[in-house]
Simulated assay, not measured.
Amino acid sequence: MMPQLLTVRVEQPDHRPIRIWVPVLPVALVFSPLLILAALVAVVACVVYRVSVLRAFLAGWRFFCALRGTLVDVHEGRSTVLVNIR
């Protein structure tokens, strides 16, 4: 199943944490014209490098679906950024 929600939390020692919830599907729908353009570029790249277009798109879809449950923590100096993909 594809990811449904992206949660971002930014923590700084002097401020309250900032939390942002981003629903994946509405964002994908808003950026769908760019996604269509990216798909066309990917098809051309597959043809140029002689890679099966269907297998490349299936591998990309499987990678996208595997992102569910990913947790990324970035610590830079005194700030922390936490990204959770659900």
Rank of each mutant, 00 (worst) to 15 (best):
M2K: 10
M2P: 15
P3T: 11
L5G: 04
L6E: 07
L6M: 15
T7I: 12
T7M: 02
V8T: 08
V8D: 02
V8H: 02
V10C: 08
E11H: 03
Q12T: 13
P13F: 06
P13D: 09
R16G: 13
R19I: 13
I20S: 12
I20E: 07
P23E: 13
V24C: 04
L25C: 04
P26C: 05
V27N: 02
L29Y: 06
L29I: 04
L29C: 09
L29N: 11
V30H: 07
S32I: 05
L34A: 08
L34G: 11
L35W: 08
L35R: 06
L35H: 09
L35N: 08
L37Y: 14
L37E: 13
A39R: 03
L40S: 10
V41Y: 10
V41Q: 14
V43R: 08
V44E: 06
V44D: 08
C46D: 13
V47R: 11
V48L: 13
V48W: 10
Y49D: 14
R50Y: 01
R50K: 14
V51P: 02
S52D: 15
L54R: 12
L54F: 07
R55W: 10
F57T: 07
W61N: 01
R62L: 02
C65M: 07
A66W: 05
A66C: 02
R68L: 00
R68N: 12
G69I: 06
G69E: 04
G69W: 04
T70D: 05
T70R: 07
L71G: 05
L71T: 14
G77F: 03
R78G: 00
R78F: 01
S79Q: 13
V81A: 11
I85K: 01
